[in-house]
Every structure is written in structure tokens, then in C-alpha cells.
């Protein structure tokens, strides 16, 4: 088998592979920068918690309308947002810290979601919701994922400056930001909405358990390649898309489920970056090379 046959033919021959490729591209464009901001805000685990929180909403959508993308998408979005807001609220009015209340709410959500799906659906449906089926993405699904990527990029462009300052120096933004110091909180909220939106996009391709994979792994890998925020976001996008292609090919040729293949491809990219990347990787630590004079 030539490289061409291996890497290009599947996409030329099969429409479902082309759709899956387009879905991966859209997911990468949205998830890349959102993931980078999550890492910079030290919220990597919160992304994971939120991805599980999406499940009960999607499950209720599934109960109401079967495997309807829109019902499950909207349900998942509302559930994810509710958990994010509740966890934030609990940490503000009680002594529990935000990460702990996030963990509590997402565990409740995950268990509730699995229970709801199993009430009505078969095991196949449950697998579908938990692990996604990017190879079965239809036109509606593509539109949803592409729409989410578009909204994400527009909002990030609009709120880039306060979002970055809110990560870097929240006290300064409170002092100078105006809106009686609430600009930071507003940005945080909008950002959470973006995270949940992108998780809903990823969930339909990769399933609730792995939707966060294409968000966090490329973002974490990017830290070993780039040092500026813009370059970090671009690197994360590129790595996510490359993992998408790699995972799809793997899944196609070896007849493996697509979601785990894509996330494992992103995982392999992460391990490679960790070992070999030019910024702060194991290689630069063990073989520092010559440093500049100043």
C-alpha cells in the first residue's frame, strides 16, 4: 500500500470519511484556542468535569426526541452550563472550593445521565452517547460543529484582550476594567459558555467521555512548541486537526472505533511533544545545549 493509498484514498472514496474530516477540522478550530485558554487559566480538569456534565442534558434530549442531534445538543448545552454556574455559585456562597464543587456536580450529572439513557435506550444507544460516532456525522451534525467553531472564533476575537488579561492578572482587570469590576466575571462566564459549546460539538463526534480529548491534549502539547498565546492557539489547532486525520485513518484501516482512535492520536502527539518539543520538554531539560550569553 502506498502512502497515497493509505492517507488519501479513504477520503476520496468515502463520503462519510470526508464528512468526518470536515467535522474534525471544525472541531479543531474551536477546541484549539479554547483548550489553550483553559490550560492557561489552570482549568484543565474543569474542562473534563464539564464534558461529563453535558451527559444528563443530552440524555434527556435523547429521551424526548430519540437520537436527534439538536435535542441532545441543546439539552447537553443547558446541562453543562447549569453545572458550571451551580459550581461557581456554590464556591462563592459556601466554604467549598470551586474544583471540589465541580467534581461533586459532574459526578451527579454523569450518574444521572447514564441512568436516564439506560431507562429508555439500548446498550447501543448508551455506547453512542458515551463514545460518539464521528463516522456517522450527517449534514445537521456538520452544520452544528461548524456553527460552534464560527461562534467560538468570533467571540474569542471580540473578547481576546479582557480574556487574556483575566488569565494573566485578574486583580488588574478588576481595578481598571470598568463595569464596576465585573468585566472579569463577565468574561469568565462567556468563556464557560464557549467551553460548554465546544464540548457539545465534540460530544457528538467523540462522545461525552472523550469530547474533552481534542480540547485538552492539543492545548497541553502546544505548550512544548510555542511561547505566545496566538502561536499556542495555532499550534493547538494544527495538532488537533492532525490528530483528527491520524485517528480517522487509524480507525478506517484497523477497523477501530473512531473516538478513541482520534483521542489516542492526540495522546501520541502529546507524548511526542513532551519528549521532543523545543520549549521546556524533556529534551531541552536533559540536553540543554548552548545558552545565549545574556
Amino acid at each position: 500500500m502506498t502512502l497515497y493509498e493509505f492517507a488519501v484514498d479513504p477520503f476520496l472514496e468515502f463520503a462519510f470519511m470526508r464528512r468526518a474530516l470536515a467535522a474534525c477540522l471544525a472541531l479543531s478550530l474551536g477546541c484549539g484556542p479554547v483548550g489553550v485558554l483553559l490550560v492557561l487559566r489552570r482549568m484543565s480538569l474543569m474542562g473534563d468535569a464539564l464534558s461529563h456534565a453535558v451527559l444528563p442534558g443530552a440524555a434527556i434530549g435523547f429521551l424526548a426526541a430519540g437520537l436527534s442531534l439538536w435535542a441532545m445538543g441543546i439539552g447537553g448545552f443547558l446541562a453543562g452550563l447549569a453545572v458550571a454556574l451551580l459550581a461557581g455559585l456554590v464556591s462563592r456562597v459556601t466554604a467549598l472550593r470551586e474544583d471540589a464543587s465541580f467534581a461533586a456536580f459532574y459526578l451527579i450529572s454523569l450518574a444521572g445521565g447514564v441512568l436516564i439513557v439506560s431507562l429508555r435506550g439500548s446498550n447501543v444507544d448508551l455506547m453512542h452517547v458515551l463514545f460518539g460516532t464521528i463516522l456517522a456525522v450527517d449534514d445537521d451534525g456538520l452544520l452544528l460543529v461548524a456553527g460552534i467553531a464560527t461562534v467560538t472564533l468570533l467571540v474569542l476575537a471580540l473578547l481576546y484582550r479582557p480574556l487574556v488579561v483575566e488569565c494573566f492578572d485578574p486583580g488588574f482587570l478588576r481595578a481598571v476594567g470598568g463595569s464596576r469590576g465585573r468585566l472579569g466575571a463577565l468574561c469568565h462566564l462567556v468563556f464557560l459558555v464557549l467551553v460548554v459549546l465546544n464540548l457539545v460539538g465534540g460530544f457528538q463526534a467523540l462522545g461525552t467521555l472523550m469530547a474533552v480529548g481534542l480540547m485538552m491534549l492539543p492545548a497541553a502539547s502546544a505548550r512544548f512548541w510555542a511561547e505566545g498565546i496566538a502561536t499556542l492557539a495555532l499550534t493547538a489547532m494544527a495538532l488537533a486537526f492532525a490528530s483528527g486525520i491520524g485517528g480517522l485513518l487509524l480507525s478506517f484501516h484497523l477497523n477501530l472505533p473512531s473516538g478513541p482512535s482520534i483521542v489516542l492520536a492526540a495522546g501520541a502527539a502529546y507524548l511526542l511533544s513532551l519528549a521532543l518539543g523545543p520549549v521546556g520538554s524533556l529534551r531541552t531539560r536533559w540536553f540543554p545545549g548552548r545558552h545565549p550569553a545574556a
Binding site: V164, F168, D169, G171, F172, V176, G228
Partner: peptide, 17 residues
């Protein structure tokens, strides 16, 4: 200052804030 000291931002951008 609750500043993230390892945040990827350079000196000039910080001052421009």
C-alpha cells in the same frame, strides 16, 4: 499581585496594559 508569572506574555505587552 495575583499575577500568573509564567503566563506567555512579554514585557512590552504587560506595560501596555
Amino acid at each position: 499581585a495575583e499575577v500568573e508569572r509564567d503566563f506567555p506574555i512579554d514585557v512590552l505587552d504587560t506595560v501596555l496594559l
